[in-house]
């Protein structure tokens, strides 16, 4: 223990509480919320920072984890208190507990128009299982909003990714092909794909079905991943190619033993970015036109002025993002054994 530090802390903490009382009685917490929040976070951060130095070495790791958990919870509690006391407008920023409650409601109570919940109708799972087995359970999940969105994103992502990697390799390895397509690619790449959604709708036999939605996601993933893959191939260090040549790797052997593994790491980091964009596109498309899906749910609940449910929808999108990213990381873990030691740091 460092006595000097602990004395400092024992002064700092009461002062911090005193300052907040003063701010409260001066009504600054009402009139200047943002300023107060910034001041508080800075001082609080300083106190935590000093307190962390007093932690014995063997508790260091767990105390760091504690802080990473504690701070978000603290912010959420501030939000909760402010919203429930009316310091911030609860219509636009409803309390986190209310949001959680409505998330539960979205899962358990079918929504009016789509007649389904986020996860289908989970309370019927047991019943269906007895009637139709696993297939029945699957059908239940399939009818939910989350599955609708997840299906579109994953399908679009894969349909866009596979040809993109192929084209990217061709463009990366052959200069003529690159010169031929580079300007077209750069031009279309910067175009927001959501803008061509109306055209894409016209192309398909059923413009209001899932096909055009998946196609828009696929298109945006395609252009991004083509550019990423091309860059990945071009950025392979020349020395590896030379070494490959010198040891007798040419043609397909060179591709599979040198170019492919050499570019995989950057292709994977491109996939992380493309996945985020695929989520943006699908939510936007569902805003525009859909009878199901998380994007539809968010927009619909905005229209009927049910902000808690809107936020619950946002949380759902976040969870979908986290889930898909995790799957991607798992794939990366399997595909890049030489990067394993740095992946989950």
């Amino acid at each position: 223990m460092n006595p000097e530090k602990s004395i400092k802390l024992s002064v700092q903490i009461p002062l911090f509480l005193l300052l907040n009382l003063v701010l409260y009685f001066l009504d600054l917490w009402t009139n200047q919320v943002l300023m107060c929040l910034v001041i508080d976070v800075i001082i609080f951060g300083k106190i935590v920072n000093d307190a962390m130095k007093l932690v014995p070495v063997r508790y260091k790791k767990s105390s760091e984890r504690f802080v990473t958990l504690l701070f978000p919870i603290l912010l959420l509690s501030i939000w909760e208190i402010f919203a429930s006391t009316g310091k911030i407008n609860p219509t636009w920023f409803p309390e986190p507990t209310k949001i959680l409650a409505s998330l539960w409601e979205l899962i358990t109570v079918p929504e009016k128009f789509s007649e389904t919940t986020l996860l289908g109708r989970p309370w019927m799972i047991l019943e269906r299982y007895q009637e139709q087995g696993l297939e029945g359970v699957w059908k239940l999940i399939e009818e939910g909003h989350v599955w609708a969105t997840l299906y579109r994103v994953v399908m679009g992502f894969v349909i866009g990714l596979v040809p993109a990697v192929f084209c990217g390799f061709l463009m990366g390895m052959n200069k003529t092909i690159r010169l031929m397509f580079d300007s077209i690619l750069s031009a279309i790449y910067v175009l927001p794909k959501i803008a061509i959604f109306p055209i894409v709708m016209l192309v398909f036999a059923d413009p209001f079905g899932d096909a055009p939605r998946i196609a828009v996601v696929a298109l945006s993933v395609f252009f991004m991943m083509t550019i990423h893959t091309m860059g990945a191939v071009q950025n392979i260090e020349g020395i590896y190619i030379l070494a490959g040549h010198n040891y007798g790797a040419h043609g397909l052997k060179l591709f599979f033993k040198v170019i492919l593994p050499g570019s995989l790491p950057s292709i994977f980091s491109g996939m992380r970015v493309a996945l985020g964009m695929a989520l943006i596109v699908i939510i936007a498309v569902e805003f525009l036109r859909a009878e199901k899906g998380v994007g539809y749910l968010i927009y619909y609940n905005w229209e009927i002025l049910a902000p808690e449910k809107m936020y619950a929808g946002l949380i759902t999108v976040m969870l979908i993002g986290i889930l898909t990213t995790l799957v991607l990381k798992l794939l990366q873990y399997l595909a890049l054994p030489w990067k394993r030691h740095s992946l989950f740091k």
Binding site: Y240, L242, V258, L264
Partner: peptide
């Protein structure tokens, strides 16, 4: 050839 940089394959 043994190259100047360590041209062994990281993968």
């Amino acid at each position: 050839v043994v190259f100047q940089e360590y041209a062994i394959f990281p993968w």
